[in-house]
């Protein structure tokens, strides 16, 4: 039982300092995941060169793949560190922070742009205003509910954005996560009252038309959200909305 797991970890002390690499070893254990391996490194932050270093900083919270906080590049692909088992990975296991967001420290990144983009596309539901928007609880068919549920699983982990060739710190595109949120909110019985405003919010620079259909997003999404279906459906809705804007319509 003396099997060891090797980790190569990209470290960065401050948002402005240069990155460097360190190698760590942890003893293998049945069912070991990346977060628990990082916890073992934190207990004994000794590199393979025998140097005592600062413990590796990273974020984690739910430990059941619903919060998205521990998403990092594991062997160069975005994955949630909590649900990624060490057995399934090729060694040495490389850990890096997501590359599309500013690094705070080591494996911690600042994903606040994701939330700014959710606000930008009005990814919320207004339940009251000057008057009641709906009367009584809105009813929804099981089929409709089932389709919407797929999109409600998004945990804003940023994997889709990491893999997207159109998304970047210097690029305006909001990415698949925010677009799928528009798909979800526009199909909610109360949310659809602001359908047009959300469509207009994505019919601008950085919106839907910045998608290049590389379809990496749907492949890396850990929650298996049909992101490219949402993009196609929004394509249809914005086509109709554009015709309404150009030629006029009561709606």
């Amino acid at each position: 039982m003396s099997e060891k797991i090797q980790f190569r970890i990209r470290r960065q002390d401050t948002p402005y300092s240069p990155a460097y690499w360190q190698t760590f070893q942890v003893p293998f254990r049945e069912g070991l995941n990346v977060v628990s391996a990082l916890m073992m490194i934190r207990q004994n932050p000794l590199t393979t060169d025998g140097m005592k270093v600062d413990p590796v900083a990273w974020e984690f919270n739910c430990m059941e793949e619903v919060c998205g906080a521990c998403t990092m590049l594991i062997n160069h692909r975005p994955m949630p560190a909590c649900s990624t088992l060490v057995d399934t990975l090729q060694q040495p296991i490389t850990l890096e922070p997501l590359s599309k967001f500013p690094v705070i420290r080591d494996l911690m990144v600042d994903r606040s742009r994701m939330f700014a983009d959710l606000k930008r596309v009005r990814a919320w539901i207004e339940i009251d205003g000057a008057w009641d928007i709906h009367q009584g609880a809105p009813r929804i068919s099981p089929e409709h509910w089932r389709d919407n549920y797929l999109y409600s699983r998004c945990m804003s982990c940023g994997s889709c954005l990491e893999a997207c060739p159109q998304y970047g710190q210097m690029l305006p595109f909001v990415g698949a996560a925010a677009l799928a949120a528009v798909r979800l909110m526009n199909n909610h019985p109360t949310g659809k009252y602001h359908r047009k405003q959300r469509l207009h919010a994505i019919m601008v620079e950085g919106g839907l038309s910045d998608c290049g259909n590389a379809q990496n997003c749907v492949q890396v999404c850990p929650k298996e959200i049909p992101l490219t279906t949402a993009i196609g459906e929004l394509g249809r809705e914005t086509t109709v909305q554009m015709l309404k804007d150009l030629f006029g319509s009561a709606d």
Binding site: P165, L171, N213, A214, Q215, N216, V220
Partner: peptide, 23 residues
């Protein structure tokens, strides 16, 4: 449009991504 993207085919060598880059 070229300036609004950066191909990442080496990390994600999938056919959809290949066609994105080739396009």
């Amino acid at each position: 449009i070229l300036y609004n993207g950066k191909s990442n085919l080496s990390v994600y060598p999938w056919q959809g991504n290949l066609r994105y880059t080739l396009q």
